[in-house]
Design a protein around this nucleic acid. Sequence first.
DNA 1: TATTAGCACTCTATATTGGAGAGTGCTAAT
DNA 2: ATTAGCACTCTCCAATATAGAGTGCTAATA
Lengths: 348, 348
Amino acid sequence: MDLDDRNKKVLQAVIDSYIASGSPIGSTVLVKRFDFGVSSATLRNIMADLEEMGYLTHPHTSAGRIPTDLGYRYYIDSLISVENDSEDIEEHLQQAPQLQGDDLQELMEEASRFLATLSHCAGVIVAPSESEATYRHIEFVRLRGRQVLIIFVTSNGIVQNKLIDIDESIRQQDLNGFSAYLDEEIEHRSLAEIRQQLIEKIKEEKLVFMQLMDETYRASQDVQERENEKVYIGGASQMLESPEFANVEKMRALFKAFEDKYKLLKLLDRSVSAQGIKVFIGSENPYFEMQGCSMVVGNYNAGSNVVGTLGVIGPTRMQYKQVIHVVDYTAKLLSKLLGERFQRGLDR
Amino acid sequence: MDLDDRNKKVLQAVIDSYIASGSPIGSTVLVKRFDFGVSSATLRNIMADLEEMGYLTHPHTSAGRIPTDLGYRYYIDSLISVENDSEDIEEHLQQAPQLQGDDLQELMEEASRFLATLSHCAGVIVAPSESEATYRHIEFVRLRGRQVLIIFVTSNGIVQNKLIDIDESIRQQDLNGFSAYLDEEIEHRSLAEIRQQLIEKIKEEKLVFMQLMDETYRASQDVQERENEKVYIGGASQMLESPEFANVEKMRALFKAFEDKYKLLKLLDRSVSAQGIKVFIGSENPYFEMQGCSMVVGNYNAGSNVVGTLGVIGPTRMQYKQVIHVVDYTAKLLSKLLGERFQRGLDR
DNA sequence: TATTAGCACTCTATATTGGAGAGTGCTAAT
DNA sequence: ATTAGCACTCTCCAATATAGAGTGCTAATA
């Protein structure tokens, strides 16, 4: 961090040029493209200094300089100005909703492709995590024999379902009754509480429903878990456009990693806590062992209680400024869509 | 088709060897590995004949022979014996269900990965197409204001939903009533018929529900369309293992093609009509412009009325015999699972 | 003291060359 | 009809040469 002004400028110039061109930057190129008022020899000295400090490196003795991960880090923390033109984004948000999937799942897929297209990287979205208290409606549909399909509707319009087996055959009519009962109660308490309440009532009367309640409770947990594990990846082939992945082995590893969505989930979840856009550069991320990859991630929300993560995975040499914008924009867009479409409890 | 016995044997030997090794097969190799009772010179003559007939070709003058698409076609149609050991498969089906997703979607994803793992190719599954008449239950859930979520449950346990806006605010109670009415009627007629019936009733009374009915009808079509467009691709990275795709450009094109699922869908749908396993070799398939790729596809069903397609996409040089087995097995497995789990109308 | 010019040196990328090996196609003999 | 033999072709691989880009160092300069 103890860089004087000129050093900063040179570092920025090198990284900018490298991001743009993809090939190592030599002193003469720098002198031609920028006007530092010094000769190439001086630049060589400066670059040697920057290399000693760990911000730049050499692929080989007689090649130009490329940024190290540390260099990128400094670049992002101190050098690029992500203009906070929130008005500009706001404007865009007003006019171009662009996403219109009316199923949550569809919306997520669309959004991940949207991210990918704008960023030229792979777009990744982690489905919103639900808290238990938000069920709006629970429905039971009897299929054949002892099979019952439970349908959960959350207040933001997400529909989930789970098939269960129960011991005794129950009439659809009774199921409807139970459903109505749950709908009524769910306004005031969580499923866990209702279950507790039923356990107390058990000696009195409705013994039949106890098992159903238990199954419902368990199913709701299953369903939550399942939904929380969903990762949408869109436009992965975008990443292959950049020459960084001309190496077949790397490509292969990349796609293997993408198929193991669980790891991705863990990685992305780590950053959920904080607000704002975060950038993970190359080796900085411990879970995703992929050399030469960076991630730009942000959060989105719906109303207030539902929050998910979204972001972009691309080569370390990416257009950070632009990508940060795109992620920011998409996060806001998604939040807005989820917020307005599934807004909670206004008229309950 | 006018091949004498010896020519057939040589063709088979060449293709078998090429599939196994991946490199062009020369006359000496053939003479060493197989016992034709003739010299390499004679084999050269035979191979030259086969080349003239279009079954084999040369990468260059002094290389061994490799099969043409026509050669593969002949190989599959006439030379390989896919032993119809249906007992064997039956046995497997009995003991190892292997797939256990309890959501249809989950099951499809699992199955596509299953295909990929066993075949070392990419596994592709087209979601079962529904016919309109199979709804088991239709449910309306009022969200805020004029938004209503319609939930469709088909008789095989697939849940679909769609958000609609209606003109006037309706009470949840009324919605429940309408739902019950539809549930009752849907037993006897299709949605289209019910709609017709309501139109006739319109002058009399229930004017309010007409709009809802229209929306419901439209939504059901949307939902069907959406479900029918779903293609699940699993284990795409499996394909990259084979040296055929060491070429970066090919890999890139492949993944681009995979992301455009619509084309895949069209391609796979074409073969839905017929029963049994079909093999499309390289250039034989008109929609999917991907050189060096073959597809092995089959059908699955659930009960009787629901049918989908599943298959495998891999390099033209694939282990056809084995892959055909795998596709056959998976199709039967999936049919069995869907059949037993979502069996229709046994106790209605 | 900081900067610059100049030059030797290093390393990559690319083209060229020259076998070695594999395989064919043809011819003449069986 | 089959075979042995041989000349020919083509790829693959390693070795070699060459041009170009860029550095690091030294000595001169402001």
